[in-house]
Design a protein around this nucleic acid. Structure first.
Lengths: 336, 336
DNA sequence: GTTGACTCCCAAAACGTTTTGGAGGATGTT
DNA sequence: AACATCCTCCAAAACGTTTTGGGAGTCAAC
């Protein structure tokens, strides 16, 4: 109800003075400033957001696209990340809007809708692809953004990511050191950067050990995808004795496949993401996770720095991946 | 870049005409309308959202507060719900912003911040309490809103909720019919409506069966809360033979407690929410879930109708709860 | 008593849209 | 010929804020 004009009128001051008093400018006397502040407080005055946005040419909004493609918007801890991110952004006066991508619409279109309508000052991108058209578009428009996950873009852009290559290489080497020789990989869709790089990590380790890299099956990054991929590997003439899975959800699907296949419980398994439910599967799922505190807040702070104009090269965070030791990777390597 | 003024100038028309042509008004000739449309398309024109919002006195935004209190923002499927909701709202030109509540700030304050700054046209509320100050505030301000979960507000308001009373009563009676006599309840914090009503459902069934209602322990609505509450019940001189748990997360904690306590695996258990991880616990967790398609879209459509001015009484949906049959409720009732 | 510096305040413009209240011309009606 | 009726179009106001570019007054210094 209360706007600047009414407030100014009731105080016998100009709109300008009231506005500047509330913004703490020095060209209004301390006494007046205080008087204005009290009146504003009493009237419950809050500046009209739309008006300020129009005038300041800033939307005070950031959007994150939610890929809804595979029936699932994202891993369960994803909401925690968004929440932490939104909370951090709020301290800078930015609100986070979630932009789900309806069936039949491309993520690019959603980006454009927000950017071209000047509805947002910046974007947050998740589930990046190796060649990601959203990244290309935003770069061409000069809109600040940060991705969760890298891309193969030639022009550098801000990102935060886990070092999937090192993580999956280390996990594979760990299995090798434990005596495994037939180590399979359950891969995610290779157009996603994370899936590709995790697979390359596994592959590198296998080659270092002089092992064949044919025990690899690809599936959707969901429980069902992991289930089907695992069945495929278990049908091989010489079964794997260990499975390195691109995600926990896939690993849980693989566990189900293992249960169904005779002798499957002998097979070691490890996933990635540290889903909380992994602690309650049987056996409890060993996994990997990105190191670092509060991913969401970091994500937000990178974005704020991008908006402030810091160069992309300074805004790239690659976090180490740590192993989470539970039970599912402890099966002994069965004799060939 | 492109705005109405530039577009109008390049077409040799007035701003008014261009604006009205794009909005499809009949007072601009079909020929002009088409010419304008093409030019707008070619220029990639999108109306400036802030300007329209200011002029139309609508924020085109809806916020949902995310309770971050217990370290956890909400059940895992919560994001799916929000995503479906945002998608549906988008068809009406509304975007959904997520408003996490930082530590030390009340949910009410967050509501006020959005409402008083006219940053939103309406609010979505989740995790309602029996006496919910957010509801009172929004009612007093006349802001449209819908809650996920009921409240004890005397003034009716739009909501969508599951019939926890009937669901928990039915589940308890099911245990009774299977021969159980000492049926415990692991309750959530009673200030939450859902927790209270679920407990009352259990209690009603127990009383109908002439059983004592002292086997009840309360905890935080998380794995840990369920774990502690279950331990408490298992310490009783005469242990329960079955546990009805307010949420799946609590039930999973209870399962852990059961594993740790001698003979615990004899105890039947059921939760509520149908978390996907419940299918992978051992034993797989029997549970309950609200019936109905796409909660998020329903939530959104109730809100749109509330914004359109439909009376609250017509916007209250109470959905039946169905039992999800897995393994954890099949333990035989041990003799007393 | 003029000048400059400083303090406190304000009118007006601007942001880009939608909407109001006509204007001007063509066409039809009396 | 006068009048009403459409059909197209438009100038200007309005939404509520921030910012620009001073204006008036006071005070001290020359």
């Amino acid at each position: 109800m209360a706007n600047l004009k009414q407030l100014a009128h009731s105080l016998g001051l100009s709109i300008t003075t009231v506005s500047r008093a509330l913004d703490g400018y020095s060209d209004v006397s301390a006494a007046t400033r205080e008087r204005v502040r009290e009146a504003a407080e009493a009237a419950g005055y809050r500046p009209n957001a739309s008006a300020r946005r129009l005038r300041k040419q800033r939307a005070e909004l950031v959007a994150v696209t939610l890929p809804s493609d595979p029936g699932h918007v994202g891993p369960p801890h994803f909401l925690d990340m968004l929440s932490g991110c939104a909370e951090h952004l709020a301290t800078a006066g930015l609100n986070l809007v979630i932009a789900p991508v309806p069936r039949g619409v491309s993520e690019l279109e959603i980006c454009q809708r927000f950017v071209d309508g000047r509805r947002v000052d910046a974007m947050l991108l998740v589930r990046t692809k190796r060649k990601d058209e959203r990244v290309e578009y935003l770069q061409s428009r000069g809109i600040p953004f940060v991705t969760n996950g890298r891309t193969e873009s030639l022009i550098p852009h801000p990102f935060i990511d886990g070092d999937g290559f090192a993580g999956f290489r280390a996990a594979t080497l760990r299995f090798h050191a434990a005596g495994h020789r037939r180590i399979g990989h359950i891969a995610g869709p290779q157009e996603y950067y994370f899936a590709h790089v995790r697979r390359r990590g596994w592959q590198a380790a296998m080659e270092e050990c002089g092992l064949a890299t044919d025990l690899c099956a690809e599936g959707a990054p969901l429980e069902q995808g992991g289930y089907l991929a695992a069945l495929e590997l278990l049908r091989q003439p010489s079964r794997p004795t260990a499975l390195v899975c691109a995600t926990d959800e896939m690993a849980i699907g693989a566990l189900r496949a293992l249960r169904e296949v005779d002798g499957g419980s002998q097979i070691s398994i490890v996933g990635h993401d540290d889903l909380s439910m992994g602690a309650f599967t049987s056996p409890p799922l060993s996994t990997m996770r990105m190191t670092g505190e509060n991913l969401g807040a970091t994500f937000a702070s990178l974005l704020l720095r991008a908006i402030a104009g810091e160069p992309a090269e300074d805004l790239q965070e690659l976090h180490a991946i740590e192993f989470v030791d539970r039970d599912s990777h402890r099966r002994p390597p069965v004799a060939a």
